[in-house]
């Protein structure tokens, strides 16, 4: 009948195992898939990630050199980072924080405008 007593008493007199989020944030393991980012300077805007993304979260505008990901569509499978020819897409362990609206993450090559104005 009292098989649980031992567990319960042991729990009562030991420190709770709770991770005190958000007061203490825990260290994520390396290689955890939390959020996806692109380095706009390295990226060649080939569009391979857009082609292979299973949930169609990535949109690449080759003409204007804009890389957009919708983190609210992304399923964090990591295929984009795996197949990226320049390895410009990186997966960070920090997760995307909740927001009140679905904000897209836009990465754009900064020198683009200058180059265009020179031309």
């Amino acid at each position: 009948m009292f098989a649980m007593v031992k567990n319960v008493i042991k729990n009562l007199f030991s420190r709770p195992s709770t991770r005190l989020f958000p007061y203490q944030t825990r260290e994520f393991f390396p290689n955890v898939r939390g959020s996806i980012d692109n380095d706009p300077e390295v990226c060649i805007y080939c569009g391979a990630c857009q082609m292979r993304c299973p949930s169609e979260a990535i949109v690449v505008n080759r003409a204007e050199k804009v890389w957009t990901i919708n983190p609210y569509k992304c399923i964090l499978c990591g295929v984009c980072a795996q197949i990226c020819p320049k390895k410009s897409i990186a997966i960070h362990s920090e997760y995307v924080h909740p927001q009140s609206s679905k904000v897209k993450k836009i990465r754009q090559k900064k020198v683009v405008e200058e180059a265009q104005s020179h031309a």
Binding site: F29, N31, V32, R33, L76, G78, I91
Partner: peptide
């Protein structure tokens, strides 16, 4: 935790 460490999710 094992899953998160080995597989990332």
């Amino acid at each position: 935790d094992i899953m998160e460490m080995t597989a990332g999710s």
